[in-house]
Structures are given as structure tokens and as C-alpha cells.
Design a protein around this nucleic acid. Structure first.
Lengths: 326, 326
DNA sequence: AACTATTTTGAATACGTATTCATAATCAAA
DNA sequence: TTTGATTATGAATACGTATTCAAAATAGTT
């Protein structure tokens, strides 16, 4: 179909090998022939065929990015940052949306078929066989903002437990005495860790607390809060496991004319753009997306350079962003 | 590195050709050998190398999806729908985030290098040379929710002008007399068309109107409304070119204690999930994402099957969703 | 059984590139 | 210039698959 290296070689009066050397870089080519080749390539509109290239090198410049939630604006933001960062490095992004809670066999297959250079899983959980599939093929894998009980991965996240603790201390300092934690899906490490840090501190201070199980969604925060209100005891503070649930909390409170931060306080998690919108003005914990992305990319590139399969848990510190809901 | 067809062939006691035939489909293979091969493949964990495949067929199962805005939740939603739809058909998605207003040369190059089967551009604008690059390579292209002045593309969107008209008629019927349109970026077809339909009707009714230029962002809607308020004349209705701007409008109004829908009314566009949140309860125009995606996929697949380069403008009708802001 | 028509299979080849290995060209030093 | 060392180039090959072409096996018919 298209123009190939042989065509360019013919026009430039050199061999195909030389054309390859010009475009691959790192090899020794005379300045004169390089110019000849580049001129010919320009004239013909030649672009190296990435597939043939990958066939030889057994490497691709594609990173697989697996994502589940797009309703939480946090994740599109993450996607964007990854896209920009990898673009700088000449890598493309194969986007895989996984619908179910766990990454599906189909999704893995897609990633393997295209021999991705690395995989980032941002939202979904993954089970054992996934481990094996990627390890067997020496494909570096990063769990972004999620961990499994098993330790054999590299994961990048924020220090959820410390954040939970800090938030508890902050609320106590503000005079809160009894608090409610609204969890995300109960099997996600993020929700569990935030809860643990939060409750640890409350227990140490012998303060009463209660957990309501929800699902990281706006509706979840909203309905849960309505339930809390209907039970009659308004706590002195709500800590929601992410921002959009906190928005649901705030809207439910507003609907019942419960003043924030006077009658009760609300803290979220993520610090998505919307947290700064005047309607919400939400006090929340900032997840340093850029730093987390940078860290992920750094590991990924080093593992692509030379695969070691090393594991680890990197926790990028975040910070409390104080606004008007506390 | 990994397992290849030859390995499977050896284990199954057949030739590589037969393995290929089993996995490519459409060819004639005995049920018995098929089972043997599949068993061997399963045992070894074989997946056909898509790159070698593409080298032969000169086709890929990758669709390039170019997107600019991720702050507007409308687009992540679109991304998700495309991902799911194409996954069903065995296609992967190469996600390209373009930062600038126009799709960049770098982005095009990425798409060409990977020889994508088709390209969908959702948000960004594109200039002439892009046209040529894709046409030359017979790569089908769809403009999703955007059009250019040039007619030589296939575009899928909603009928923005008709929607603008309907919204105007609706507001007039509600008794509004002077209205404000808050535009998106001035060079986007969507914003221009919505405006045109809207103003056409108002002019016909000889009603006063005014346009404020904004940028499709929440901040834009918010600041613009503050400006409108500071000018002293509160219009009887705002029509914002998308929902998140409408949210900005509502928040600005709320801040100034201007009652909606009593003192003024607000209409958005898109009907993103958030429009249904209790804080906003926004009356808006629903863009039928699913239908638009379906239509895009249909065209894409037919052009992949057999490239014709045919152009057209498909407009999927939407509908007014009436909530509490009017 | 004998033959033909059809289906299934294997060997060989092509796709476009990177890379090894050998050869040719260039350079440095005497 | 001669020699030796370095560099630039080309021919050949490999990557993993789809596909053509011929051979083998099977089914169908008499």
C-alpha cells in the first residue's frame, strides 16, 4: 500500500538498511547520505511502518490504560495527564474501558494481542490470572490508586491511611465529636485504608463513629445522607471517601436546610476541579495527580528499558485543602 | 519472545498454517484439528501477534479517538460509549489527547504510524492538511459533534440549530421576553449553530437578545453571569451552550440570591448526568450519545469494510428535558 | 471398487523493518 | 605511499503471521 523503506532507498540511491539506520537512529550514517535519505523520504511521504518495526524489536510504543469509572471526574483527569506525559515520550495509549468490577479476560487479551509495552490499571480490580499473564510476558504493570492484598505488584497511590488520620485530627481540632464515614465500594483498597486511618484516630480519642457503606457515586452519597438524616442523629461531621459522594452529602443536607459548616461539617477526597466550585466549596484531601502520574511513568519507563519485575508501594503525600465546608 | 503459532503447531502436531487458519477464522478446518489446536493454544497461553497480522493484512483493529476536553463530563461519557461499542466488534481504541485547539501534527503522525483503521475526532478542530493525510491513506474519518466549514467529511452530531429553535420557542411559551445566550468557543460549529437557531426564532418574534462569548467551561459560565448581573439587567432567561456553563450560571445566580426559575430561567445543553443532580435540576437539551455513537460506528465499519470516502452530515435528533430551572 | 469432486492440510512465500556479518570506504599515522 | 584502524554501507536474514499453490485425505457417486 504505502511507501516503504525500499522505495525511499531506491530514490535516494542507497540500500534499505541505510534508510532503516537513518530512521532508527543511534547508528552511524554519513551526514551526506542522511540528507539524501531524508529528502527522498520527505518527497515520498514516508513513515516507518510501526508494525514491522515492532515485529523485529518485539517492542511497541503503546501503553495499555485500563479504566473503569468515568463518572468520577478524577479519572478522566488522570487519563489526560497520562496521555500528555506519554505523548512526550513518544508513546501512544490504548484505552481499555472495563465495565465490570474486575478487569475481564477480553481486556487482557486486547492488551496482549497488541503487545503493549506496559499496563496501567487505574480503577478496576484484578485477580490472580491477570498477574500471571502479564508476568509471563514480562509486561510491566502498575496499579494506579488501587492495591490488592497480594504484594506482587508495583502500585502508586497516595497515603490513604495517613490522610484518613490527618482528616480525623483536623475534625477533632475543629470540635467535632461524633462522625460518619461514607465508604466507597467495600472491596477497594482506597476506601478501606481511608476508613482505617480515620477510625484509628477516633478510637484513640474514644469518640463515637459510624460507617455507612456506599459506592463512590454521587447518588450513593446523596441517598446515604438522606438515610442518616432520617435516622435522626445528625453527626458533627461527614467524611466521604471521594468528592462526588461529598457533593451528594452536601446536596442532601442543603435539601434539609442543615447548615454547613455550622450544624455539621463535610470533608471529601480527591480535590477534583468541582470541589472548588462555589456551590460546594468543599474541604477535601488533594490527591497529587501529577506527581502520581510522574512516578508511574518513571517506573514504567525504567521497566520498559530493562524488565526487573520489581514490586513496591509508592505513596505520594497529599494535603488537606481547607474550604468552606468545615 | 512469547509463544508463537509455530510452538502451538508443534504441540498440536499440525503445521503453522493450520494454526493460523484456526485463529483467523473463515477458513476450513476439521473440527478435530481445531480442537487439538485450541487445546494446545490454551495450554501454552497463545495469543496471535497482532503486529505480524497487521503486517500481512495491512489492516489493524485499532480506532484512533482524538479528544480535547475532558473537563466537560460529556466527553468522557462519549469515550466510554465508543470503547464499549468498539470492544464488542473486536476493535481497540488508541486514545489521543490533543491539547491545543487544533489537532497537532504529532497526533496525526501517531495515528498514521499505527495505521489505524479509522479516526474519530470528537472535540478538536482540524485543518486542511489533516484531510489530505487521511484521505491519501484511505483512512475513514468521522467528526463527532463538530463540523468544519468544508463539506468533505462525514460528521455525526445532533441537530443543533433545530434544538436552538425549540429552546427559544419553549422559553417564549414560558413567557420570557429578553434572553441571553452564552456561547462556547466562537469557532466551534456546535456553539454557532445553537446560537443561530436560538436567535432566529427570537428575531422572528422581535424579542431582544444578547450574546456573551465564553468558552464551554464552568468558570466561563460563572464569570459571564457575574458580568451580566453587574451590568444590572437580569434577562428573563439564560441559554448556555452546554451544561457545565449552565451550572456556572446557576451558581452565580444563587450567589446573588436571584431565584430560578422565578426571577430568571436557565437552559443548558447536553444533559450530562450532573444535570439531574438536585442542586442543579437543570432543564437542558439531551444529546442522544448512544444513538450518535451507534451511527458513527456504523459508518466506520462500513468504510472499513470498503472504503468509499463518502461524506455526509448526520443529525440525530435530541429532545428537551424539562426540570426545575425553567 | 473405482473414480471424481470436494475438503483439509502443509510447504513456501510475502509483508516491512532491524540487525548481523562481511565488504568497501575513509581516516590516521608513519 | 603503506599500513592499520575505524567507519559507512549493502546483502542476507529474522520477526510471526496470512495466504497461495500443490498434495493429500475425505466424501460422494456410479
Amino acid at each position: 500500500m504505502g511507501i516503504n523503506a525500499k522505495d525511499v532507498a531506491r530514490l535516494a540511491g542507497v540500500s534499505q538498511s541505510t534508510v532503516s539506520r537513518v530512521f532508527f537512529g543511534g547508528a552511524s550514517v554519513t551526514e551526506k547520505t542522511r540528507k539524501k535519505v531524508l529528502a527522498a523520504a520527505e518527497e515520498l511521504g514516508y513513515t516507518p511502518n510501526e508494525f514491522a518495526r515492532s515485529l523485529i524489536t518485539n517492542k511497541t510504543n503503546i501503553i495499555g490504560l485500563v479504566m473503569k469509572g468515568v463518572k468520577n471526574p478524577f479519572y478522566p483527569q488522570v487519563l489526560k495527564e497520562f496521555a500528555l506525559e506519554f505523548k512526550k515520550l513518544g508513546y501512544g495509549i490504548l484505552f481499555v474501558h472495563t465495565n465490570n468490577y474486575e478487569i475481564e479476560k477480553e481486556d487482557i487479551s486486547m492488551l496482549l494481542k497488541y503487545n503493549v509495552a506496559g499496563v496501567i490499571i487505574t480503577d478496576a480490580a484484578l485477580s490472580l490470572y491477570v498477574t500471571e499473564d502479564f508476568k509471563k510476558n514480562q509486561i510491566p504493570l502498575v496499579l494506579f490508586n488501587r492495591k490488592t492484598e497480594k504484594q506482587d505488584f508495583y502500585s502508586v497511590g497516595t497515603n490513604n491511611m495517613a490522610a484518613g488520620r490527618k482528616i480525623a485530627e483536623y475534625l477533632i481540632a475543629k470540635g467535632c465529636t461524633d462522625m460518619v464515614y461514607i465508604s466507597g465500594e467495600r472491596n477497594t483498597s482506597t476506601s478501606i485504608e481511608r476508613e482505617k486511618g480515620f477510625f484509628d484516630v477516633l478510637e484513640k480519642h474514644q469518640l463515637p463513629y459510624k460507617r455507612y457503606d456506599s459506592d463512590f457515586s454521587y447518588q450513593g452519597g446523596y441517598e446515604t445522607t438522606k438515610k442518616v438524616i432520617s435516622e435522626g442523629n445528625i453527626p458533627s461531621a461527614f467524611f466521604a471517601a471521594n468528592d462526588i459522594m461529598a457533593f451528594g452529602v452536601l446536596d442532601a443536607l442543603r435539601e434539609h436546610s442543615i447548615a454547613v459548616p455550622e450544624e455539621t461539617k463535610v470533608v471529601g477526597f480527591d480535590n477534583i476541579d468541582m470541589a472548588n466550585w462555589p456551590t460546594y466549596n468543599l474541604t477535601t484531601w488533594e490527591q497529587p495527580i501529577s506527581d502520581m502520574v510522574q512516578e508511574t511513568v518513571k517506573y514504567m519507563m525504567s521497566e520498559i528499558e530493562e524488565y526487573t519485575g520489581r514490586t513496591g508501594k509508592v505513596k505520594i503525600p497529599g494535603q488537606l485543602i481547607e474550604r468552606k465546608t468545615t
